[in-house]
């Protein structure tokens, strides 16, 4: 770990965190314009051309708006709670490979912050820590609404986390390795979606529930619980929760592309196509590497847009429907998927 490796690592982290943090205002703008387009209204167009500067205005508002810490609140845990949900959401991105290797000045750089050998397990372990942000926020704000909201949204996240964990076992059976980098390499010929369609479905649905997005955001349902666990939160602290939610969406979308849609692989069977057309697939050429990074970002933005699109079309679940779907439909489906994949592998079809 000499000095150059360290600087490369620092640059990679800067690039990834910069991309994540810039994605948040862009997503806010896309969400506002998108929802306007779906509901056939205009959306923000006052600030800057087509409302493009609206996110900047929001950020300035959040910084200057006063941020009172109410007196009945736990003085130490209350301001810390947003960090508990921001840090796990952004740490997951360390294991996701956003590109193939890059060769500059004779040094091969793997376009992945940390090639963790137990990739899938690391993602699940850190993903399961997102609950603490909700719990501590609910408990420390000492308010009836926020405690009930915290309990409800964390028990929802809990029940969908089992479905998430069980759905990840299907692709693991097929790939036989934890490391996300090797999984993307294995998807050169055929993407994960063709081998594990049911696992993709379960993973995608529980991804919605994990990030408390509609149609699973009942605890923040405006009518019943005022604002769920972040009722007492003021300007910037609420903005941090908001940012953590968006980063969580981008991370789940990136995981989706890595596991099921071939990560940075351009198109399935790309290697054989390149041989036919005679393009040099010299693995380390910078142009090809950047093309692969572009492929990864394109797929991730596609799935993030689906998150936003679903929010403005589907109605919200009732709480018992939500728990029933989680426990009585998704979990049995995930375990049936595991059994079916194992039997198919045993027979030799898969």
């Amino acid at each position: 770990m000499d000095f150059i490796d360290f600087t490369i690592l620092a640059i990679k982290i800067m690039v990834v965190m910069g991309a994540l943090l810039n994605a948040v205002p862009i997503l806010v703008w896309v969400e506002r314009r998108g929802s306007a387009f779906i509901q056939d209204r205009l959306g923000p167009n006052r600030v800057g051309p087509m409302g493009l500067l609206q996110p900047v205005a929001d950020v300035i508002k959040f910084i200057f708006k006063e941020d009172p810490i109410p007196c009945h609140v736990h003085r130490f845990l209350f301001p810390i709670a947003p960090l508990f949900s921001l840090i796990p959401a952004s740490i997951i991105f360390a294991a996701i490979p956003f590109g193939d290797t890059l060769e500059i000045w004779g040094r091969t750089i793997t376009l992945q912050i940390a090639d963790i050998h137990i990739g899938i397990l690391y993602v699940l372990a850190v993903g399961s820590l997102g609950i603490y942000g909700v719990l501590i926020a609910g408990w420390s704000s000492n308010n009836k609404y926020s405690i009930l909201g915290a309990l409800r949204s964390s028990s929802q996240m809990i029940s969908y986390e089992i479905a998430l964990g069980a759905s990840l076992i299907g692709p693991l059976l097929v790939y036989g390795t934890f490391s996300l980098n090797e999984i993307v390499h294995l998807q050169a010929q055929s993407w994960g979606i063709f081998l594990q369609p049911l696992a993709f479905l379960i993973f995608f649905v529980s991804g919605f529930a994990e990030s408390n997005r509609l149609p699973f955001d009942l605890p923040e349902g405006e009518a019943e619980l005022v604002a769920g666990f972040h009722t007492e939160y003021g300007s910037m602290k609420f903005a941090l929760f908001f940012m953590a939610e968006y980063i969580h969406i981008v991370t789940i979308a990136a995981l989706n592309t890595t596991l099921f849609w071939g990560g940075w692989q351009l198109i399935p069977g790309m290697v054989s196509l390149a041989n036919v057309l005679g393009i040099s697939t010299y693995p380390h050429s910078v142009g090809l590497a950047l093309l692969k990074v572009a492929a990864f970002t394109l797929k991730t933005t596609f799935f993030t847009l689906i998150f936003i699109w679903v929010r403005w079309t589907l109605p919200r679940f009732r709480y018992d429907q939500l728990m029933m779907l989680g426990w009585k439909i998704l979990i049995p489906a995930a375990f049936i998927n595991i059994g079916a994949t194992a039997v198919l592998l045993y027979i030799g079809w898969l």
Binding site: I118, L121, Y122, L124, A125, V126, S128, L129, I131
Partner: peptide
Amino acid sequence: APFLAAIQILIYAGAVMV
């Protein structure tokens, strides 16, 4: 023992402490 570290976080920190 990275596998055990991940399990420790997943079970102990993620489920028992919750």
